[in-house]
Design a protein around this nucleic acid. Structure first.
Lengths: 169, 169
DNA sequence: ATTTTATGTCAGCCTTGTTGACTTTCCAAG
DNA sequence: CTTGGAAAGTCAACAAGGCTGACATAAAAT
């Protein structure tokens, strides 16, 4: 994969990765992640929610009916931490928790209409940001972006990501 | 990849950005950032430091002699927050604060030998991770990765990033 | 009948962010 | 020279969102 691509001279020159080049990549991740979360953070600030609520909402939207345990393993936090967030979302009527039919110990999580509405606002903002970045960088860059990010994940996280990715295809 | 699939080159297919494709990009950022910070976090945990200390150390290493105000604008936190971190780093002998010669109100920050040593350990881990990801993704992907990340930054942050980037070239 | 699993909850702690108020030092403009 | 403002530091109080440990309940599994 990744045929020398970037032109005759460009390809192999990038195989020499100086510490300087790597440092720039590290700082790019740092600054880009700030931009990536900036818009949702602004929106969430106005309500009484934070980034943790956003993450829960995102993955419940992504996998409706997911159980608490599923969510815990995707988010990588403790149940106490997730529960605090989940409780407020349920109290505020953004998330619904239904007792499992086959296994009644499990709770299946769904977004309510109100929850879906917030999800839409948040992801609209984030998608707009990403779409704009993609447009500036161009189609070829998008491929590389995703490839490097995937390669950067921990194996466990990558598995989670791949599962989510395929479940839609 | 190339889930757009249709195009032989894949290029033009990516100009049609479905919400699904964008959602995958969003999740890739989320999971990749976790991997990106995992190694330093593990190391820092064993000492009594956190991610905030890492960030301060990184940018002092990057720009030795930087002032507190410079650091504040790069990190985007309040001086109270930075000061708490900076104080422990100075007390522990990782950072040295020198009164400015031209403007004595300013403090110029430097890493001590001990501070540089920790910086090296942390950045070695992070660079290894990034290098491995670059190797897997290939040279062309690295270009795209950086391009999309830069385009994703807030204008202010991008200016900070560009300044740092150029100051080394 | 017992053990294990899934969930929820209480209590307490830590890091790292915030705001607001106040001080000291020092540069710079009037 | 005096005064205003900038750079830095500090104290106090607070919040979000992580964490651990302990414990409770219901239901499934053995």
């Amino acid at each position: 994969m990744a045929e020398g691509g970037a032109g005759p001279g460009g390809g192999e020159s990038l195989l020499f990765l100086t510490d300087e080049q790597l440092r720039k990549g590290i700082e790019a991740m740092f600054f880009a992640y700030r931009g990536f979360t900036a818009d949702p953070d602004r929106i969430l600030d106005e309500m009484d929610y934070g980034r943790a609520h956003h993450r829960a909402i995102h993955f419940i939207h992504r996998s409706p009916g997911t159980t608490v345990n599923n969510l815990l393993s995707i988010l990588g936090v403790t149940k106490q931490s997730l529960n605090r967030v989940l409780r407020t979302l349920i109290e505020d009527g953004l998330v619904e928790s239904r007792v499992g039919r086959v296994d009644k110990r499990e709770r299946h999580l769904f977004l309510t209409a109100k929850g879906s509405e917030l999800e839409r606002v948040l992801s609209d903002a984030q998608r707009a940001r990403l779409r704009a970045a993609y447009r500036v960088a161009g189609p070829a860059a998008v491929q590389g972006f995703r490839q490097v990010l995937e390669a950067m994940m921990d194996p466990d996280l990558r598995r989670q990501y791949q599962t989510l990715k395929e479940s839609s295809a």
